[in-house]
Design a protein around this nucleic acid. Structure first.
Lengths: 202, 202
DNA sequence: TTGACTATGTATAACGT
DNA sequence: TACGTTATACATAGTCA
């Protein structure tokens, strides 16, 4: 029994509020449905309860209704971070550029590797050959340089060891003995060191 | 005055339907508002009239409500062509792959061109040198083949011309004359054709 | 269109169970 | 918590202005 006009303000009693919510919610949805049928309208209603639970009603597909709303209002209902069409276009453009670059590099690579030459003109072949010769020259020089450095390092080490040996002999005050023979007659250590297999060990 | 219970079905009379639409719509919005206040709920309602006109109500910001709905349902209400976050992630992943490929190709290219060798080991240098030598061999072979083909073509042409000359001479019934001298003693036409500038024209 | 009027149907607040 | 009941408040169909 209704005691009188109710005030439209938040119902403080939790139970009462929940009951009212449930009843009025279904009442609202009923009214929404009736409106949609009687007047041939597209109706959608969304309700979040205080607890955050979702209730919805739609006379047709709610997604369609919301999309229609979005189009009508010219708005997207999307997360803040959602990418724009423009941004994606930018990405795609970048990708096209990258694909082109990859193709270009692959073709170049192929040619430098001596493949896919079937449609090269003589002139082009000549250019490629020149480039390759140049490359080969550089690589060989670099290789030679590395060898040299290696040899230098080893020579330095040998010299160091020899000095050490002399110093030790001096301290002991004896003639060097028990040292590998033949170390004195060979002044040029270079002949003693070589890349590859050692000649022999005496 | 209401004559009796009304049927919940489309009102055929246009005027009546429009009036009912207007009244029930405001009634619905009023109920929605009351529900939101009484029960502290978030309510939104969207109505499209039969004519396609939009009416909406929301207890708070309707955009927020719809966004909340979208998040709750895990859906975007966006135009068909609008890119999803997932799609963009896919693109970005592809781009990373492409960037890596480009870097790899560039490094390879650089090495084949004899550049950026500073940090190559001897072993690596040796491999590069071997590859380059192989490439050079292939390119030179290809070049040689092209030269040969060219020469073959020219020889064939010369032979053809010679045959033609002989036939013409036979028809005229005379000793060939006015022909370039020395064409008979030279059986090997190869010496007569060369790549580059012609030696001379007699 | 829009707003009033009003008889009547409906929704629902306050209770029970 | 959820469902009946019921007295009331509210909504609204039909009508007129």
């Amino acid at each position: 029994m209704v005691r009188g006009k109710i005030q439209i303000k938040k119902i403080e009693n939790t139970t009462s509020r929940q009951v009212t919510f449930s009843k009025r919610r279904s009442g609202l949805f009923k009214k929404a449905h009736e409106l949609s049928v009687l007047c041939d309208a597209q109706v959608a209603a969304i309700i979040f309860s205080q607890k955050g639970r979702l209730y919805d009603f739609a006379s047709s597909d709610i997604q369609k209704t919301i999309k229609r709303y979005a189009e009508y209002k010219g708005e997207y209902f999307v997360a803040e971070s959602h990418p724009t069409e423009q941004y994606v276009q930018g990405l795609k453009k970048e990708m096209v550029t990258m694909v082109e670059k990859i193709e270009m590099l692959e073709v170049h690579n192929q040619k430098l590797m001596g493949r896919s030459l079937a449609f090269c003109s003589l002139k082009e072949l000549q250019e490629i050959a020149t480039q390759i010769e140049k490359s080969l020259h550089i690589v060989r020089s670099r290789k030679a340089k590395l060898y040299e450095d290696e040899v230098e390092k080893l020579k330095a080490k040998e010299r160091e060891l020899k000095d050490e040996r002399v110093r030790l002999s001096g301290r002991v005050g004896e003639e060097p003995s028990g040292m590998p023979s033949g170390s004195k007659e060979k002044e040029d250590v270079e002949t003693d060191l070589s890349i590859g297999f050692p000649k022999s060990r005496s």
